[in-house]
């Protein structure tokens, strides 16, 4: 990887008016290219984002998280990104850890790096999520998608331009996490997991959410 790669931080945001300020405040101090995809919010997300030195892309109607990430990817790729980082709008991830995600790409030629909540760093994870939902997620990922990572649903990831061009996100909704992992393995990319911290403001995916992801994955596979 060349020196001084052009890094793009991509943040999907849906009704994150309350949380996004603190995230952007920190991000713009460290990164020049921050892209926020406002996914049809009906709160003041866009107005708040407009106050920061970032790129704002607006989905005029809600298309969900996977679609927003692909919109951000397309913009970043069109604008010469060398490394793309997927980040969260509601302060779940730490800005300081972005560099730890990028390092393996820059220094060790990895293609894609996933943050893992199961590699040592302390994340206050809800009990049911840690002991029921994620073990099931891991089994499903391994059985259906041949994915062997410690974290089945990591949303914090960094990838090279080449990896982003290969991994076209087709799942508009929440199944994109599994889809990206699956494609990373399918295209035989050089994959690395690094420990990450997650601050749980809310539960995220619950059990019914997990079922919807499973349904989306299976149906998309049949429809192909």
């Amino acid at each position: 990887m060349q020196n001084n790669p052009k890094i793009f931080i991509i943040i999907p945001a849906w009704n994150e008016g309350k949380n996004i300020s603190s995230v952007l405040e920190e991000l713009v101090k460290k990164y020049e290219n921050v892209v926020v995809v406002d996914d049809g919010s009906y709160d003041k997300t866009s107005e708040i984002v407009s106050q920061y030195t970032v790129v704002l892309l607006k989905h005029i109607i809600n298309r969900d998280q996977g679609a927003s990430l692909q919109t951000g990817n397309d913009y970043a790729l069109n604008n010469g990104a060398d490394i793309l980082v997927h980040f969260d709008a509601d302060g779940q991830f730490l800005v300081d850890e972005i560099q730890e995600m990028i390092n393996p790409i820059v220094n060790e030629n990895y293609d894609i790096v996933f943050g893992s909540r199961f590699m040592g760093k302390k994340s206050k994870m809800p009990w049911a999520k840690k002991n029921i939902l994620f073990p099931i997620g891991r089994i499903v990922n391994k059985a259906i998608l041949k994915i062997k990572t410690t974290d089945p649903q990591s949303g914090f990831r960094a990838m090279t331009r080449d990896a982003a061009q290969k991994i076209q996100i087709e799942h508009d909704r929440k199944a994109h996490c599994s889809e990206i992992l699956h494609k990373a393995f399918k295209y035989k990319l050089k994959i690395r997991e690094v420990p990450m911290t997650v601050i749980y403001n809310r539960f995220g995916q619950n059990f019914s959410g997990g079922i919807v992801i499973l349904k989306d994955l299976i149906l998309k596979k049949i429809l192909k």
Binding site: L56, H59, R63, A67, Q70, D74, D172
Partner: peptide, 22 residues
Amino acid sequence: ETNITKIIRKIAIDNAQDNRKL
């Protein structure tokens, strides 16, 4: 749904609001 997403994506990128130089 996929086609709608493609349209929405194109509109979003064509109308990108770049505030990086603000």
